[in-house]
Simulated scan of single mutants.
Amino acid sequence: MPSKHLKKFILFFVGRANFTRFYVTCFHLIGNEDHVYISAGNEILSFDIRMGSQSKPLETYNYNRDEINQIAVSSKGYLAAADDSGDVKIVNTTQKCLYKRLREAHTSICSSVQFIPWRPWTAITGGLDSKLAVWDFSKGRTLFSIDYGSPELQNSSSSGSTGQCLNPAFVHSVAVSEEGILGGLYKVCAVARGDGAVDVVDLEYELAPAKSKGPSRARGSTMSSKTTDLGDGSNNQCQRRRIHLDYSMGGHTAAVSCVAFSAFGEKGKLLVSGGNDASLKVWDWSKGFSPETSSNSELVLDIDVKKKVNWLCTAPTDSDNLIVCDTSKVVKVYNFL
């Protein structure tokens, strides 16, 4: 949970944001809890929160040309910023300079960016072109991509999902699991989609050399043709590489805005999603991911929050461990035991 310095700083910065029309999109702690990065418009600012109300930016980065939608910081001190142009800027915070520009994977707004913790030179992005892309950001090139808007994936996703919303499958948010969750069995990401679905993707399988996936796989190809690996949450395939959590399983009836793996309890066991249908869904996703079980992924909790969900996060505590921001003026905190 935040230190007393961080609590003071958040209160100060929110007050400042309201006064000056500063739009704060996100902030991220790195190294120690006294150093924070915040994006506002097309700027990124870093602060030492121990300074409280006297805090002034330590650094300001202006490499993004359009409004920033999300920032992330890697264990190596690289800062990624995804913006409305579809580009992602990678900043070396040690040398305080632009390191790489990730471009051309997205043809529309890049809405989300995360680093992959067990692959220190790899990042993952999602956009409103319905694409998910994984990058070697040291070389500025994509390793693979999934086009959720492709006819093949659209047809696979819509089968058996009567009542599913018909919005485009925009990628609104991406969450990457921490290394070592559930005994180190899974290295996955979760994708919040505009059509109301949540996908969980086995990143290590997708990133494996083509020869280990069989003769039909071409290295560097997009995943839109990999319909044989698309799961629907049930155990009807001998080897699950992706699962698809949608309306037919009790999922969202409108766009999913955010996803997060649980930091409470058994870390990563549960997946929490929030959507424009004013609901939170808590999934036991790993049951349907393992080929060694006969169980399906299942919805374990459905919470009506009354308002559209904008963002959520989880905390590694026994109480007050699910925090939700919606379209009301109240931040809601839930206890998940």
Rank of each mutant, 00 (worst) to 15 (best):
S157V: 12
H106F: 06
L270N: 07
L270V: 00
Y37S: 03
K7N: 13
A82W: 05
C26P: 01
R241V: 10
G41D: 04
Y186E: 03
S158R: 10
A72G: 09
S257C: 06
W118R: 10
F9L: 09
T125W: 01
G275P: 01
K287V: 08
V201Q: 02
T122E: 04
S161L: 13
I71Y: 09
T162Y: 04
W121K: 13
G194L: 12
M1F: 14
G15H: 14
S224A: 15
E59Q: 12
K329Q: 01
S112I: 09
Q154I: 15
V198Y: 06
L207N: 12
H35D: 15
G160P: 00
K226Q: 14
L301V: 14
L79A: 00
L230A: 11
E33W: 11
T94A: 14
V324I: 00
L230S: 03
N167G: 13
A210Q: 11
A82H: 11
A72M: 07
A315H: 10
V331E: 04
F19T: 00
C165S: 14
C189P: 02
L128V: 15
N42R: 05
T94Y: 13
I243S: 07
T327C: 03
L6R: 12
T327E: 02
V191C: 09
D87G: 05
V36H: 10
A278Q: 12
K96W: 06
P291L: 12
K329L: 09
A210T: 07
K287L: 09
L11G: 09
A190G: 01
N310M: 12
C189F: 01
I303H: 05
V333H: 00
L58R: 06
Q239S: 07
G233T: 04
I116E: 07
R16V: 06
L58D: 15
A105W: 00
L337Q: 15
P215I: 13
S158P: 11
L203S: 07
T122Q: 12
R65Y: 09
T228K: 13
I124C: 14
W118I: 11
S74L: 12
S234V: 15
K7I: 08
H106K: 06
S234D: 01
S85E: 06
E266D: 01
D84E: 15
N92L: 10
P316M: 07
G251K: 03
D302G: 15
S212Q: 14
D83Y: 13
D34N: 10
S221R: 12
A263C: 09
S225L: 11
M223S: 15
D87Y: 12
S138E: 09
R119W: 08
V91G: 00
G86A: 07
H5S: 13
D34G: 05
V191Y: 08
G140K: 03
H28C: 11
Y247I: 09
S295M: 10
H5K: 02
P2V: 15
D84G: 13
S234L: 05
F27K: 00
R50W: 08
L143K: 06
D87K: 07
V24P: 10
L166V: 12
T162R: 14
T93C: 13
L322W: 00
L45Y: 05
A82V: 03
S39R: 02
V14S: 15
K308Y: 10
T222H: 15
N69S: 07
P316K: 01
N42L: 01
K287Q: 12
D34M: 10
A81N: 00
Y78V: 03
G127H: 04
